[in-house]
Write a protein that binds this DNA or RNA. Structure first.
Lengths: 366, 366
DNA sequence: CCCCCGATTGCACACGTGTACGAGTGCAAT
DNA sequence: ATTGCACTCGTACACGTGTGCAATCGGGGG
């Protein structure tokens, strides 16, 4: 007797995964457990939910049998009757994008903490595909939706009314406001970066945007212009160019800037990925960062601190924003009204990619 | 009549998302559609599945009404009866890990192409948590499972028999073989990197491993040792150290190497993230890469090419491996037997972080 | 002794869909 | 005229779970 229990205790690690089923070959259903415990299946259901309506001994017995059989209630059957799947959809542009994956991590974190699962889908920044993906998630009856960098944005409004699936947007790119969103202070952040450059003596500062970032690009450019205006520097149209997200396009845009008669001494990039390509283009021209050209990023992706020179950038608390989005979504799903739009602050992180303006006439400038 | 259709055509973009429901406020069920079409609900079911058992006209009428009502069949109800959810579980260490997110991207890609959804879960490289997460996914009745960098590995075997959920492991870290896995040629890859350094004249080469990468770390170390042996270089125990995944631990390990009486002139890192910290530590000592110390990585994460100096590393086709894992999983799910273990080749990418061995006595060496 | 009440438990249903089977047509073959 | 078949469609289930309600039991108060 004593040896027997000792023996099974030794197997405990295995047991968690094995638990041979004495019935058929398929997974046991609640009725199988009920039969083994000689009770009705509702009693099993209640016992497993710690309902007070079932006696302690019966509950213990049922739980023991369920454990032995490795029984796990089917979430799909439960979802059918409760009309809640305890699942949320998460739409990102692409999981391998460092920005998106950080947000995803925050979302998964708090969802998982509350027993929710996350259905992942990529939109690839394609409005058409984003719409399709939303439909597929709706078909799977997710309880809520988090969408990062949405290109559809306000178009969700009607869907919201009919499907009544709460939606929270992170870093919404659609012009105009959506009901629930978590965004960063784009304008203020870029303004801080620009101010920093101006403080270092730069006067010819370029802005290298991204046509993919509809709204945030617009806002960041606005912050850039605001800083120039307040410093009494004229905004020169030729110094504001943009890429389309692809490294080649960004490098080409930067090349155009460097070939200008009077090239900029500093460039504010739409984000860190842009800055990566910009630095590359600068070096391809035989110039140094920051000695010849200062560069700022935006987002503070994990590798920004590891670059040489380490990137001066604006911190975008992506993971935290993912958490906030999910927390907000939970409030919406539980019916309570919550803050509609959350705007988080952007913090300038000064590192090594920015420096004082070079003595004039360094390169092909006059 | 003509104007009417023209009007609705103009709204087509909106229509996709709106489709007001003329019934209650909840989503329409198949019965609602059946009532509107004056048929039985099985007929609706068949019509929407393009079954030949329903006449073309009836099917068209039903589809039109379903479309108008914005009807989407509930995947959960369907899953209950068909016993297939068209959903796979994906367990990664952490989505914000560049390695994992690349794999995830590959998995999502092919799953999505075939109409499958992906349930995402983080294991945080914790065996206990990994087990819990597997149970939760099983509860949700996923049709299959992809696990990256598993710490449980072969322990899935019993689960496999009972739950009959096909499992494919990517970059399995558990010692010993698992049934279905996709792994990289760790030993050959690291051997190529080491050979490259030896070819550059290096003799004192260190290996900086990672205690988290149980199996791959062992295999890569083996490749390292093999290269040394074949070149007639003694393997010195003091030159093989390891971190635990945290940047601080890696930097500390590298510091120990640099404080050695005869420090290494080159170091093979377990992976790119390790190399990042190593380079940082080297610079903190006032030394340069590769002039004073050559560094190699492993994985070829996207930023490797952007570092200064660009990182010499071993290409790990992570996205492709994710695709392969998912393709293999599809075969398993459809019942066909497939290749058990897939081993992909590793390709050395020579960039700028490795160079010829420095003239002796450069720094505190003798 | 009867009635009522609290504590347990079972019964019957519902959730929304897919599918085997039978029923009802219309038409051609016998 | 009857039979058989191809074609459509509806009926009756089943999937596995949760929950309102009735039923049963035991006990205490009147």
């Amino acid at each position: 007797m004593a040896e027997k229990s000792a023996g099974s205790a030794a197997n405990v690690a295995h047991v968690t995964l094995t638990r041979a089923l004495a019935l058929g070959s398929r997974q046991p259903s609640i009725k199988d457990i009920a039969r083994l415990a000689r009770v009705s299946h509702p009693t099993v259901s209640r016992a497993l939910q710690n309902s007070p309506l079932v006696s302690a001994e019966t509950a213990a017995r049922i739980r023991k049998i369920a454990e032995e059989q490795g029984y796990r209630a089917s979430a799909v059957a439960r979802g059918l009757v409760t009309r809640r799947t305890r699942t949320v959809g998460l739409i990102v542009t692409s999981v391998d994008d460092p920005f998106a994956s950080e947000v995803a991590c925050g979302v998964e974190e708090v969802a998982s903490d509350r027993g929710y699962a996350v259905l992942l889908a990529n939109s690839h920044a394609d409005p058409e595909r984003e719409r399709r993906v939303v439909q597929e998630l709706a078909e799977r009856r997710v309880d809520g939706l988090v969408v990062t960098s949405s290109r559809v944005g306000a178009l969700y409004l009607p869907l919201l009314k009919n499907l009544d699936v709460p939606i929270v947007l992170v870093n919404d790119q659609y012009p105009g406001e959506f009901v629930h969103s978590v965004t960063i202070a784009n304008q203020e952040g870029m303004r801080a970066a620009t101010d920093h450059l101006i403080g270092l003596g730069h006067r010819r500062i370029a802005y290298l945007g991204d046509s993919n970032g509809y709204r945030s690009d617009t806002e960041r450019l606005a912050g850039f212009q605001e800083a120039l205006a307040d410093a009494g520097i004229d905004f020169e149209r030729e110094l504001a160019v943009e890429g389309d997200g692809r490294p080649e396009a960004t490098m080409e845009a930067m090349n155009r800037l460097l070939r200008l008669k009077r090239p900029p001494t500093a460039v504010c990039c739409y984000n860190d990925m842009t800055a990566l390509s910009v630095i590359r283009a600068v070096r391809a021209h035989g110039l140094r960062v920051p000695a010849d050209v200062s560069v700022t990023g935006f987002d503070d992706l994990f590798f920004a601190a590891y670059l040489a020179p380490a990137l001066t950038t604006v911190r975008h608390p992506m993971r935290r924003m993912g958490q906030m989005a999910m927390e907000n979504l939970f409030k919406l799903m539980s019916g309570q009204e919550s803050i509609a739009q959350i705007k988080v602050g952007a913090e300038l992180i000064v590192r090594e990619s920015t420096g004082k303006v070079p003595k004039r006439g360094r390169h092909h400038g006059q």
